[in-house]
Structures are given as structure tokens and as C-alpha cells.
Amino acid sequence: MTEALASGVPRSSRRPRRPGSVDASVGTDTRLGVPRRRRTRRSRHTAMAWIFLAPFALVFLVYTAIPTVAALAISFTDMHGADLRNPFAVDFAGLSNYVRLFGSAQFLHDILNTGIFVIVGVPVTMAVGFALALALNSGLRRTRGIFRTIFYAPVVTNVVAVALIWQYAFNQSGTINDALANFGFAGPNWLADPHLAMPVVILLGVWRNFGTAMLLFLAGLQGVPEDVQEAAALDGAGWWRRLWYVTLPLLLPTILLVSVLLGVFFLQVFDEPYLLTKGGPLGTTESVALFTYKQFGFGDYGLSSAASFVILVLVGVISFVQFRLLRPRT
């Protein structure tokens, strides 16, 4: 049927309407006389394009657009698990969920924890990724591919599986403490210690992400022109000075991109604390995302949505900043 539509216009009448370039209909063509022809062409393609886009558009509407608006709406209601089948029969609750949210000591603690995840996790992951990218980019040939594969493997590894390995390794009588015992240390119960649990949880996040950082930095480093480096070297600049004054400034866009991607990851961190500690001990590893999940589990959809909206706003701010900062480059 569509074929009939498309070829409905006789070939003879279509051909002369395409003067000059074959892709005149694509892009922003502002030559005189062209717009009207483009309009008809464009409207014919509009229906077709949206048919092609329909599956994505449907999934986007049902699972992204509506839920995003709904999350905000639900955060202003007293919706609970019991209202699941009658989502419109809930009462308007004003700002009461937000009042409860910011009056909750645990939530404020969770914001602090999430801040620690971001402030520690992002720079550590970036530093490791950057150091590895530098090392892999400094003239290695035969071993580079192998190392890259190894360092990237954690990124594709299933988080539930790794978290279980982490528990096996970091429990009171796990492999870590077994190794420490060889040096005469009596190892702690890492994940049950309020001071040690957080570093171990963050370590899992770093382990899972430094491969991505490395790969993006490696790509960035390949874009640093060789002659600039050589010129700096000829001028007597040492390795550190070249890194600081030549490489890093040229890598700024990559550094920004990586920091934003990692920032967004650690802002929504859920899997690591949920699987390793359930937010414990004493709530010291509970993230905002985990708080959201727990309130959802308690059936308090209103409070959960209010908390999730806080995440949405924070991620939105970061994404917006990223978009702004990266745009002017081209």
C-alpha cells in the first residue's frame, strides 16, 4: 500500500522537480523557489517517517514521557500501593511529601551519602581510567589490546554476580582477610563496619566504571596531535609539563564528558549499595536511589516519587550543564 503511495506520483512528473543536487530535499535548503517543492516532499515524508518511528515513539510515551510527568504528579499526592489499580483516585497532598522528605533524617543522610559517592567515586574512577589510558597510549603495541580487553571486562560483567564475589571476598572470613592474616593483620568485617562499608561499596562502583573512563580517554588521547607533543618536547618541556600544559588542555572536552557520565552514574547509584549492604550498616551506604526503592517497597509511592524527583532534577542539571558546555565546540 505504501509503495503505491510512494510511487503514486508518475516518474516523469517527479524527475524534473529535482534540479541539481540529488539530496536537495534533505537538510536546510534555502535557495529561492525551493521551499514550496520541499514542503510537499516533506509532508509526504512526514507520515512515512512517523510510521518508521512509531515503535520507538510508543515505548517512549508509555515508559519515559508519561512516567516522567507522572513521577512529578504522584509526588504531590498521597498515592500508596493500595491505589495501584486506581491511580486517579488519589488525593492531592500538596507539598507534604516534600516536607516529609526533607524532614527525614535518613533522607538527608542519603543525600550526603550520594554526595560522597559522587565526590569520591567520580575523581577516583577518572584518575584510574586516565592513568591507564596514558599508559596504554605511550608506545605499547603488542600488549595494548590485551590490557584494554582486561580493563574493560568489568564494565560488561553482571553486577549481581560481582556483588556476590565482593561479599565472598570482603566478609569477616573472606579472601581479603585471609590474605591480610598472612601479614599478621586481623581483618575487619568490612561491609558491617560503618566506616569501612562505604569505601568497599564505592570500590565496586569504581571497578565497574574505570574501563569506560579509560576507553573514552584513550579515544581523546588519540586525538591529541603528535606534532604539538613533539614541538613541546623539542622546546625542552618534560613529561609532566607536556601532560599539564599540552595534553590536559586538549583533553578538556573528554574530561568533561567522562566526569558528567560518571557523575550521572554515581548520582543514581543503586545496585552496589542494594546488593552489598542494603544501605547499612546504620544507613551509612544508603543512596537516594535506594531510599526511593525502599519507600516504593513500603508502598509509599508519594514519598518515593518525591525522592526520585530530586534525582531527576539533579541529573537534569548535570545533563543540561553538559549540553551547554559541549555544544560550542562545533
Binding site: 508509555v62 515508559y63 519515559t64 508519561i66 512516567p67 516522567t68 507522572a70 513521577a71 504522584i74 495501584l84 491511580p87 550521572v264 548520582l267 543514581q268 543503586f270 536511589a289 526511593t292 526503592y293 516504593f296 509511592y301 518515593s304 516519587s305 526520585s308 524527583f309 534525582i311 531527576l312 541529573v315 537534569g316 545533563s319
Partner: peptide, 14 residues
Amino acid sequence: MVPYTAVFVPQFVI
């Protein structure tokens, strides 16, 4: 860009 953790409650309701 929409964070998964921010929309799963309404996704679940739907």
C-alpha cells in the same frame, strides 16, 4: 537522559 531510578514508580503503576 531520564534516570531509570527516577521513573520506575510510575512505570510500575502503568
